[in-house]
Every structure is written in C-alpha cells, then in structure tokens.
Design a binder for these strands. Structure first.
Lengths: 245, 245
DNA sequence: TCAAGAAAAATATACGATATATGATCTGCG
DNA sequence: CGCAGATCATATATCGTATATTTTTCTTGA
C-alpha cells in the first residue's frame, strides 16, 4: 500500500489545499477505478490503514463514506472494507465518471459513454422541440446565432455550443434526463480537456472522439443516421423553423 | 427542526439496527427531497444540529458526507452546510431516487422516470439484439418461457420478467446503460411496492403506472409506438426469432 | 467424529473533547 | 464609495476511548 504522500509533510504542515478527506477519497477512488487495487480487495484495518496513509482515522472514515455512497466499497464490522464488483458502482455518478477519466479512460469506457450519449440526446432533442416555450426558443436561436458567427474552434463559439446544449436539455422539462445529459457532457468535455493537456495540441482530441463516433455509426447505422439528422436539424439555421414547428 | 426520534431512546438503547449515520442521512435526505426544508436552507451549526438530532457530531458529519457525495448539500467553513439547488442533485443516484419515492413521489417525478425509461429501454433492446451471444440467447429464451408458463401475476413469473430484463441489459455490453437501466427499474419497482403497501391491494399500483404510461403515449405517439413495438417484439415468442436475427 | 453452542478476538462504529484553518463579516482608512 | 485588514464564527481535522457486531475459534456434548 503506497503512502499517500501526505504523511511526509513537515511539522508546520500547510494542510493540503482541498478538504483532506476529499483528497483521500479521490486517491483511493482512482486506485480502485484504475484497477490498481482489484475488485474484492479488502483494505487493511482502519487503524493501520490510517497510519499507512498518514491521516487520522476520522478522515479515512469520511473518505470511505463518500466511496460507499457511490457504491465503490462496502464495509461491515469484522469483515473490513472491501471493494465492490463493478456492477455495484454508480457508474453514472459525475465523480465516478471523472475518476475513470482521470485514470486514463479505456476505449471501452469511451465507447460506452458515446453510445449512451447517442441513445439519449437525439430523443432529448425531440422532447425539447415539442415542449420548448417562447423564451427558450429565442434563447436557443441566439445561441445558434453565436455558434454561427464565431466558429466552434473559438472559445466564444464553444461557450455558445454549451449554452445551446443546456437550453436544449432544460427545454425537455425532464430533470433526470437533464442530469443524465449533463453528466455525459461534462465527462466528454473532461476527456477532451485531459487528452488536450496530455497530448499537448488541442486539436488532437477531437479527431479521436470523432473516430469513435464513426466507429459506432458503422456498427449501428440506423441509429446513427437518426441521431445525426436530429442533431444537424437542431444545430443549424433550418432548425429555427423546425423548432417553431 | 424536528427531533430525529433517536434522542428519546431508552437507556438500554437497542441502537437502531442499521448504521446510525445512515439512518441520519436518510432522515435528512427525505427532509430535503420532500421539500420539507427548502433549497438554499442552511442547517444549524454542527454542534447544535448534532444536539438537536440527539447524535454525536461524528455521525452527523458522516451523514453529511454521504449527502454531499450525492450532491444534495455542500458545506464550506464559516458558511455552514446548505441545501443545493435541485439541478446539482445526483437525481440518477439509486439512493436519491429511492428517497424521492419514499417521500411520496410526485406525478412529475413518475412522469420523468417513465419517460426516461422509454428513452433508454427500446434502444437498449436494439443494442442487445445486435450484440447478444449464444449463451445469453438461450438464457433469455428460458426466461421468456418461464414468463409464458407462469403468468406475470405470479411471483415466479415476475422473477422471470426481472431475469429477462437483466439479461437483456447485460447483452447490451454497455456498463453505463446497464447501471442506468437498473436504477430506473428498481426505482419503478419500488414505487410499485410502496404504493402496494400503502394502498393495501397489490393490484392497485399497476393500473396507476399504466395510466401514466398511456398518458405519455398520448403526448408523444411516435416514440411510444416505437417503444411498444420494440418491447412487444422482445417480450413475446416472436422475439426468439428476432433475437436470432 | 461431528455438530452445536459459547467464548474470544478483531474490527467497524460511536462519542466527546480539543486544536486549527478558513471564510464571511465588520471595521476603518483612503 | 470602495478596498484592505482584523476579527470572529464555523467547519474541519485529530485524538482517545468506549461499544457493538461479526467472524473465528474453542469447547462441550452427543
């Protein structure tokens, strides 16, 4: 069990910026989702574990509370705290998604993510088109205008894109759908950002994603075509008419 | 602020069966999701709050860790712990879903839930049909047989139904889709169970849900029809052929 | 020899006290 | 009127101890 790197802090410890338990939770979580510590693994007893990590037991306990809340581990008296099998994890939890991305998302993960997006978003767009009110309509039109004026490679253009997406999801008037879509979107955005910072060039990330997208499209052409049509309809000026019905 | 009902426990405290912090978390969570304590509300200082609830600060802290992990609240030094706005909640978290149901799910909640199900499941069925392997195929066929032999009103029939559903989702080979669908399914099952125990008769729940279903269908006939077709195709014997492609 | 029950050990859980750091509010100066 | 610093309240972090629960082991009896 590796030291967390906190135990070695000098006397006048500057106390790591974020909440300590959060740091610990993140550390443990990444170890778990990365597979560094396998499923079924039982962590050492609370006291020893806290000593190893160089934090107090309370902090460790609270960190485990977070992980338990997200289904990553479960702990019972005498049995210790063990890592749950993957099917018990809250894979849709924003943090869990984020941790997986941070650990270098696997291709399977990205595939699942994009697939889910293509399952959800086209239908969400349909719902939005049916339920939007006038105010949302003009806001979306504005966002679309901005997307056209600035290209999508500029920050302003990207902001407009995100804004449009938000408005679209709000217009569905389905809170859960909104939550789901937000999780997916931020996760995808994170992968882009991470890959950008890792590969250096900001342009390298998109083609990768696009490749995955087309890969999915080849496997399920019907679904992909429908999704494409819906998204294109909504993302260009023709849409303004479509949205107005 | 109401007492938790734990402080009044007699001397020989039988200590509530479950973990105490979990009980507290659930109590607070239901207060939050029910709207009993509104969004933006700031909880009393930790010490006082713990005293009010009749528990130690540690358990209160750990309870709040759980709620924080699920996005229900956020706490910062000096500012106290406050309830987040709904859009920050992890609405797809199984526990959050469960709490909402436990607080008497609103019609809007149920509508959103069923809508999400109808967005996800038909497409999941499509994916499953394309990716299933031989083993899954025979398992699903067996489950379908069982569903036909016993009617769906018998326990065995319901078990087969659930089993079929599980197999279907596994066959999609998409972990996130599986997680999502599981959350939705168990939530819907819970509402059924709750409504059953509340209304007495076990038969009363289903018609209610069916009414909601048809209500959705009326609003979006195209989507509903497609969903129906897919589900019916998959839920009856014709499917065995469809699944074999 | 095996099974059932009882004792023991290990471990998470719960509690209270104390110290620290941090952010919000207030105050005073410019 | 606005900004900078001081102050204070509050969450956070830590420690020590007690308790409950479960698994394991041992004992006892058939």
């Amino acid at each position: 069990m590796a030291d967390l790197g906190l135990g070695e802090a000098i006397e006048g410890l500057p106390l790591p910026s974020g909440r300590l338990h959060h740091v610990v939770a993140q550390r443990l979580a990444t170890q778990i989702v990365s597979g560094e510590t396998p499923c079924g693994h039982v962590f050492p007893a609370e006291v020893e574990h806290a000593e190893i990590l160089g934090v107090s037991r309370s902090v460790l306990r609270e960190a485990f509370r977070v992980l338990t809340a997200k289904g990553l581990v479960s702990s019972r008296p005498k049995a210790g705290t063990r890592i749950n099998e993957r099917r018990k994890w809250n894979l849709l939890d924003p943090d869990v998604l984020g941790w997986q991305i941070q650990c270098g998302a696997s291709d399977a993960f990205l595939r699942d993510l994009f697939e889910l997006r293509m399952v959800v978003e086209p239908q969400a767009a349909e719902m939005a088109a049916m339920r939007r009110d006038e105010g949302q309509l003009v806001d979306m039109a504005n966002a679309l205008d901005a997307m056209e004026r600035f290209t999508l490679s500029t920050p302003k253009g990207r902001a407009a894109d995100i804004r449009f997406h938000e408005l679209l999801m709000e217009a569905t008037r389905n809170e859960m759908l909104l939550a789901l879509s937000n999780s997916i979107s931020t996760a995808i955005a994170s992968t882009t950002a991470i890959k950008q910072s890792r590969d250096g060039s900001p342009r390298d990330a998109m083609p990768e994603h696009h490749a995955l997208y087309t890969q999915i499209a080849e496997r399920n052409p019907r679904q992909a075509r429908k999704a494409m049509i819906t998204l294109i309809e909504l993302a260009h000026s023709d849409t303004k008419i479509a949205l107005k019905r």
